[in-house]
């Protein structure tokens, strides 16, 4: 096992949030419980608490993002942070400035926390290893490695509907090979003692030794959906067709698309999730996406409280107890 202790300080508290792997069950539950306390804030008319007042958060997105970036920004605003958002693909790095120079220039502006998305697996660890002491890094997606806040909002959504993980069968369907979301979800589900984690995909979209992640592997959707409590559909990127990984969207939908009919194979009260953005008619049928069992839009709103929770834990405050009113 790698040493992920860079995420935790000597007292076992979060100082960076880079990957689910390397965390423990207690921290995951603390995130979920803290997020609970913020869900009430987001329901209030005045949605702000002063936990990050006086702190500056920089959102560094080296890759495009709508949902993740906007929910991070909302979470930061609701925690009263000062915010600096940069789309770095249009900024200095293409002019030849190195990643570290970009980071250090921003550090010189007294940034307290970086929220970073970058196309290289391992970039979040890299940044965390090179920031000044006291500065925190939150991984908003690093290559094909992890997307830990997405996984935590998914866990939050599952707990909201299903309570106890230890009796659940969860199926993750789609492009496991390229998915940082799937890797984070698998680690989180296993840390939370989920009864069974299944991944369902054609072989070209499965990495080598997928089982070693702690999952059972299905190459047939019908078999994999049998009796599951939670179905998580992953987005299929169009470029997978070009890389000879799949013949066509049509054939993919025929074999791996979630239809009403296939949904019947799961438990009657199964929930359907998707980290977005979804391709209707490619991985998921519209009627399922908009149907009663879909919790996809809830995922998005829970995303704000979960990100507030992680950020507040990093600055050393768990929830609202010490945050006061605003």
């Amino acid at each position: 096992m790698p040493n992920n202790s860079i995420q935790l300080d000597d007292n076992g508290k979060l100082q960076h949030f880079l990957s689910i792997e390397g965390l423990n069950q207690a921290i995951l539950y603390e995130i979920l419980d803290t997020a609970d306390s913020f869900t009430s804030v987001t329901d209030r008319t005045i949605k702000k608490v002063p936990i990050l007042r006086g702190k500056t958060v920089a959102n560094l997105f080296f890759e495009a993002s709508t949902r993740t970036r906007s929910t991070f920004e909302l979470a930061e605003q609701r925690l009263s942070a000062d915010i600096l958002s940069l789309n770095v693909d249009t900024s200095a790095t293409i002019k030849g400035e190195s990643l570290l120079d970009t980071l250090q220039n921003l550090e010189a502006m007294q940034i307290d926390m970086f929220v970073i998305r970058h196309q290289d697996s391992g970039s979040a660890h890299f940044f965390a290893q090179h920031v000044r002491p006291g500065v925190s890094v939150l991984n908003a997606g690093d290559g094909q490695h992890e997307h830990p806040t997405q996984a935590m909002l998914d866990m939050y959504t599952i707990r909201h509907h299903k309570q106890d993980f230890s009796s659940l069968r969860v199926a993750i369907v789609g492009d496991i090979l390229h998915s940082r979301v799937a890797r984070s979800q698998i680690h989180a589900l296993n840390l939370l003692n989920t009864a069974e984690v299944r991944v369902i995909a054609p072989r070209t979209l499965l990495p080598m030794d997928t089982e070693s992640l702690g999952v059972s592997v299905y190459e047939n959707l019908e078999q994999g959906l049998e009796g599951v409590d939670v179905i998580i559909m992953l987005r299929l990127q169009k470029e997978r067709m070009r890389g000879a990984l799949l013949p066509s969207e049509k054939e993919y939908f025929r074999k791996f698309g979630l239809s009403q009919e296939r949904l019947q194979l799961a438990k009657p009260d199964a929930i359907v999730m998707h980290p977005g953005p979804a391709n209707r008619g490619v991985e998921i049928e519209s009627s399922v996406m908009d149907g009663d069992q879909s919790v996809i839009l809830q995922q998005v709103s829970f995303g704000i409280s979960v990100r507030m929770a992680v950020m507040s834990m990093i600055v050393g405050q768990s929830g609202l107890q010490s945050g006061g009113d605003a």
Partner: peptide
């Protein structure tokens, strides 16, 4: 190397 480590770390693998 294409194996459990690259799978876990999400690193593009070399078979």
């Amino acid at each position: 190397h294409e194996g459990a480590v690259a799978t876990r770390l999400g690193l593009p693998a070399i078979p």
